[in-house]
Amino acid sequence: MPSAVSRVIRALRWVRWYLRELTDESAYDRYRAHLRARHPGAAVPTRREFERLRAERQRKDPRQGFRCC
Rank of each mutant, 00 (worst) to 15 (best):
R16S: 10
P45N: 03
H34T: 12
W14F: 13
L35Q: 13
W14I: 09
D29S: 15
R20A: 14
R32W: 05
T46V: 00
R32P: 00
S6R: 07
V5T: 10
R20H: 10
R20Q: 12
L22W: 14
A43P: 03
P45R: 08
I9T: 04
A42N: 02
R30W: 08
G41T: 08
Y31A: 15
R16I: 06
A33Y: 03
L35F: 09
G41E: 07
E49M: 04
V8I: 10
R36F: 05
S26Y: 09
I9W: 02
S26V: 09
Y18R: 14
A42K: 09
G41K: 05
V44Q: 01
R30Q: 14
L19H: 11
R32E: 12
A33M: 07
S26D: 15
A37R: 15
Y31R: 11
H34D: 13
R16C: 04
A37D: 10
V8E: 02
P40S: 06
L12M: 10
A42S: 04
A33E: 14
L35R: 14
R32Y: 05
S6M: 04
A37I: 04
A43I: 01
H39R: 08
R48Y: 00
E49S: 12
T46F: 02
T46H: 01
R30P: 03
L19E: 11
R32D: 00
W14N: 07
H34I: 04
Y31W: 12
W14Y: 12
T23F: 15
W14D: 12
V8W: 02
R7C: 03
W17E: 13
R13C: 11
E21C: 13
R32N: 00
A42L: 01
R20G: 09
D24N: 13
W17V: 08
R38G: 02
H34R: 13
A42T: 05
E49K: 09
R36W: 04
R30H: 14
A42G: 00
I9M: 05
L35Y: 12
A37F: 08
L12T: 03
L22D: 07
H39S: 02
W14Q: 13
A33V: 08
A37M: 10
A11G: 12
R10W: 00
S26K: 14
I9H: 03
V44Y: 02
Y18Q: 09
R13S: 10
A37W: 07
R30F: 12
R7G: 01
T46M: 00
H39F: 09
R16G: 05
